[in-house]
Design a protein around this nucleic acid. Sequence first.
DNA 1: GAAGAATTTTGACAGGCGTCCAAGTTTTCC
DNA 2: GGAAAACTTGGACGCCTGTCAAAATTCTTC
Lengths: 219, 219
Amino acid sequence: MTQVADQGRDRISRRQVDKFEERRRQLAASAMRTLAELGYARTSLRDIAQNSEFSHGVLHYYFRDKAELITYCVRQYKIDCVTRYDAVITTADTPEGLADGFAEAMAATLREDAPMHRLWYDLRNQSLFEEAFRADARDIDESLERMVGRIVAQYAELSGRPAAFPAATAYAMYDGLFQQALLRHFTGDASAAATLAENLRATLPAMLAPKPASRTKRS
Amino acid sequence: MTQVADQGRDRISRRQVDKFEERRRQLAASAMRTLAELGYARTSLRDIAQNSEFSHGVLHYYFRDKAELITYCVRQYKIDCVTRYDAVITTADTPEGLADGFAEAMAATLREDAPMHRLWYDLRNQSLFEEAFRADARDIDESLERMVGRIVAQYAELSGRPAAFPAATAYAMYDGLFQQALLRHFTGDASAAATLAENLRATLPAMLAPKPASRTKRS
DNA sequence: GAAGAATTTTGACAGGCGTCCAAGTTTTCC
DNA sequence: GGAAAACTTGGACGCCTGTCAAAATTCTTC
């Protein structure tokens, strides 16, 4: 019997569950490597299996079908992604320090994880055509939005000025900046990451409400 | 003999050439309808032919292969796209009027051409995996960037303040706003277009250099 | 209206796809 | 150590893909 169909049954030892889940993660990791390299449209289950140490049949033992595998991959990606920037926020104690940390963290992940990011955008776009991916993509987008929201809020706090836009707006704009940088990165522009960092530093001040008129009321 | 291979030969009457080009456009239009509906990954040449009034074999009479057909489609898309916003610029004579016109034009095309836009993002993303599409995608991106640049420049002119960021930066941010709105639109958010317009109006002032200190030097 | 060119249809091809399954191999448990 | 469960393999299935070419049709031109 395939274990996929037995997920809800009574007696599975903890070791079994752990091993099952571990193998799912392992296969999902192979899938992500392959997807990041070939893109959604060109990646077959056989490609994925060939990039793992298993044969192609095993994929249907751990995942009901291709959609479930890819959905699982997207969820894994999220877990990695969200926790990546939080260190930056707590460390910085000046607006400029925060801007630098944010800008450098983004530039670094562009340089190091570019194939992964193009996969994310590929899958998010697939969600526009395939209902099945929509909820997960939205979920990841929302957690990225919260992350940007925390950055901007902290930047506002350190600057002593309120944020000018909601988190969703700020996230959309920074996502756009990142995506353009990714496009340039893949066209061979070696300075794409540096330009991205520069853009982030330059635009953060514009995320805050304009400075009050120079004649201050009090204090 | 296929005419595709004969493009460069000596004696083709103008009518022949026109008819040949016209049929290419016609087939490309069918292809775009189909691609906008199914997405790149799920669209086959037979799907495209079925959405036209021809059989699937004819596609290879007018296009060398699938890549050439899709490249042709992308180029057609560009022609439609770029000339769409220029009316807005010349009409407006106040910053607010320009912002309104820009915001409403973007919101309108989101409402009316949403499937086309998701196709554009799909193909631009494919260009991250398939070298063949990269140049065309970059080309379109650049002309969109120039369009946004003209909008911001005119907005700056009408406001009497200089633009704060290069056109590429502004375009990236507005592209991000549009893409997020598109995502929301397809998740069934009926207010996506209105929110987009609101965001555009709210963020345009942030594209200009901060107001000078209240004590002006002269004039 | 017939000859010839241009266009379109139709069917075939080789190969890849997701999925499934029967047969093996390994692990677990008493 | 042997029975049962879990896991893995590799092949088979039906379907779909892009491409191609020969036949059928339509259009041009004299």
